[in-house]
């Protein structure tokens, strides 16, 4: 057991943190609303090679693992960076993992094509509320037992069909009947590849929520140390302190679970998929409670748009919700953990 990051990972943490702090301050986040996409920032993220950081080097990627991707996702969450890094990384990993039809994979790895994945299997001709669906050139969709790559209409320039939403996310419905459709895989292989992609999305979104929670806690702490009521800083009131202490404890638990899930993925453990879901579940609870409490401790100012805490509050609720009601995921867990009916 070794719970420290490697020197390389520490260096990456420093670099990614610095990058997002500098390139995605709250003004950039606000300016990108309501779409939740900053094309210039996205180009910089692509130039850094982050979306393909976990793709093997012989496929043109960075040759790192999901621990490294989770690090990037954590700091993306921390700064609420308006770029679909998680979706692009997941889709790129998926495209490079299915045999045949190498073209979209190479373009995605090279950053010339922005790809995403529809999290829910599709029955008709529409993939509903696809994360990054408003800005992606290509969407990977599971329909029946076919894994499809659907190109256009859409793309970063188009912001096609973006719908206003709580989390300022570039979600959109994507039609399968007007795009150019390629079959990537069929049968059990298609279903398994899609499920793996969903688990990757859960893993990385869990890490992003860790970042959201950490920053939301800091915003709360900074505010309560500054604000006074009844002649004293509100930071001195025990009910305020204790909620912050609970949240900071949950954040440490979230951190351990997020990186355990990433480590399990990189180590190829059979439990990796379940850990990814567990990480997302706990990170969702933690991020929302933390952001919600920090907003509450801002008093009336927390309800105004002026303070940044509301940016975190909305995303803490919204980001994981794209995957659906978490109580359904909790109810699946005992079967996955103890009956091994599904990874």
């Amino acid at each position: 057991m070794n719970l420290d990051f490697t020197d390389d990972q520490e260096a990456l943490r420093g670099a990614v943190r610095e990058f997002f702090d500098k390139e995605s301050p709250p003004e950039v986040v606000r300016a990108a609303e309501p779409l939740g996409f900053d094309a210039a920032l996205w180009r910089k993220v692509v130039e850094l090679g982050l979306p393909a950081i976990a793709v093997p080097e012989d496929r043109g990627g960075g040759g790192a693992g999901f621990v490294e991707l989770a690090i990037a996702a954590e700091f993306l969450g921390r700064s609420l960076a308006p770029v679909p890094l998680i979706e692009a990384a997941v889709a790129t990993t998926l495209l490079t993992s299915v045999p045949g039809e190498a073209t979209p994979a190479a373009d995605a790895v090279a950053g010339e094509l922005l790809a995403t994945v529809a999290l829910h299997p599709v029955t008709g001709d529409v993939a509903r509320l696809v994360p990054a669906g408003a800005v992606a050139d290509l969407v990977v969709v599971l329909r029946g037992e076919e894994l499809l790559a659907v190109r256009g209409p859409g793309g970063p320039a188009g912001a096609a069909g973006a719908v206003p939403n709580l989390g300022a996310m570039p979600v959109a419905d994507r039609r399968l009947d007007t795009g150019e459709v390629t079959v990537l895989a069929k049968g059990a292989q298609a279903v398994a590849a899609h499920r793996r992609a969903v688990r990757h999305w859960e893993l990385l979104t869990g890490a992003a929520l860790l970042g959201i929670a950490s920053r939301a806690l800091e915003l709360g702490i900074d505010y309560v140390l500054d604000r006074r009521a009844f002649g004293v800083p509100i930071a001195g009131f025990q009910t305020v302190q204790h909620r912050l202490a609970d949240n900071s404890t949950a954040i440490e638990g979230t951190r351990l679970l997020a990186y355990k899930a990433a480590w399990a993925h990189d180590a190829g453990l059979p439990s990796a998929g379940t850990l990814a879901t567990m990480s997302l579940l706990f990170a969702s609870e933690t991020a929302f409670k933390t952001a919600s409490d920090s907003l509450h401790f801002h008093g009336g100012y927390g309800y105004t748009l002026e303070y940044d805490v509301q940016l975190y509050f909305r995303r803490a609720k919204a980001w994981p919700l794209v995957a659906g009601d978490r109580r359904v995921a909790y109810a699946r867990l005992p079967h996955r953990l103890f009956d091994a009916t599904e990874a």
Binding site: R327, Y330, A331, R332, L333, P334, H335, L337
Partner: peptide, 10 residues
């Protein structure tokens, strides 16, 4: 199942 799942995570 939902409650057992929650316990498992915690």
């Amino acid at each position: 199942a939902e409650r057992i799942g929650r316990i498992a995570v915690e």
